[in-house]
Design a binder for these strands. Structure first.
Lengths: 154, 154
DNA sequence: GGCTTGCCTGGAGCGCACTCCAAGGTCTTA
DNA sequence: TAAGACCTTGGAGTGCGCTCCAGGCAAGCC
């Protein structure tokens, strides 16, 4: 289901271990009583880069964003809600291509509800598997750390 | 600590959702009473490709493997043990560069025990964080799936 | 001897998810 | 009117973890 199932499987787990010393983008809370935001505001809310936001739109992960009279993007609250959800999907490790597929299904309307649900259920299964793997690896790590602690290792 | 901490953070979660239809390499159990194996035997034991095994050696993730008189690799049980451990580290999502660093510390001998332990502890923290993220995402997924189930979504 | 199988090497290529660049338009403030 | 901030685009580049390729050697079998 994941890492190393096929010798060719592309495993790409998460970390980017930062531990301490993370620059941490501001991640402002979204203000309310407003319904359009510039791209840089969305950057501040989501922590995504402007490049990434434009790229998401280009690949169809977001529906077309409204534009100002000069052609600048004006994100609306529903766009930010969608980005929040996409962020969760991203955390699950779902490939972007699958997220795009989900987005297309949403745009396609009501008949795709079953397919969308199936996609989420499958992702749910992946997440459970991944959690189990992590817990397994954690146990090994704990044993090893224990050996170092008592001075038995190496 | 992970995904999206800096806008530039490279997040690369795991899945490769396969669910059904996974080709699954054989993954034979390691026979005992023997202490050298050809690369193709190791492929069978570990599920890694021969390319990947050679690459691991090249980048220093494995110490030099013994050779037969004709220059072919002959893996020993300690190499397989190491590969098992590396597989666990891989499951944690630790970047290969860090595994290489750990391997170098091991080769460097006893004075590096504290550093090695610290590396594992830090990885342990990453794993816990990642599990928490996955559980958070899982909760969102469950809510969404619930909405689809009761016909409220979209 | 010829064929097959299995292994060797260095180096190029790939898929993913961004990330950055160059060249240019528009808006605001001084 | 000029500077500076902020936005636009298409397309090229990056880093990671493999993955594959070409060309070649050695052993076993008919």
């Amino acid at each position: 289901m994941t890492v190393m199932h096929t010798p060719a499987a592309t495993a790409r787990p998460t970390p980017t271990r930062t531990g301490t010393c993370a620059p941490e983008p501001p991640r402002h809370p979204r203000p309310d009583g407003q319904d359009h935001y510039t791209i840089s505001e969305v950057v501040a809310f989501t922590g995504l880069s402007a490049h990434t936001l434009r790229w998401y739109e280009r690949i169809g992960l977001m529906s077309h964003i409204d534009r100002s009279h000069t052609g600048q993007r004006r994100y609306r609250n529903r766009d930010l809600d969608w980005l929040d959800f996409v962020g969760k999907l991203r955390l699950t490790g779902m490939p972007v291509a699958d997220m795009v597929r989900y987005a297309e299904l949403v745009r396609a309307g009501d008949e795709t509800r079953a397919a969308r649900r199936a996609l989420l259920e499958s992702t749910r299964g992946d997440v459970l598997t991944r959690i189990a793997e992590l817990q397994d690896a954690l146990a090994v790590l704990d044993v090893k750390i224990g050996l170092y602690a008592e001075g038995t290792e190496s």
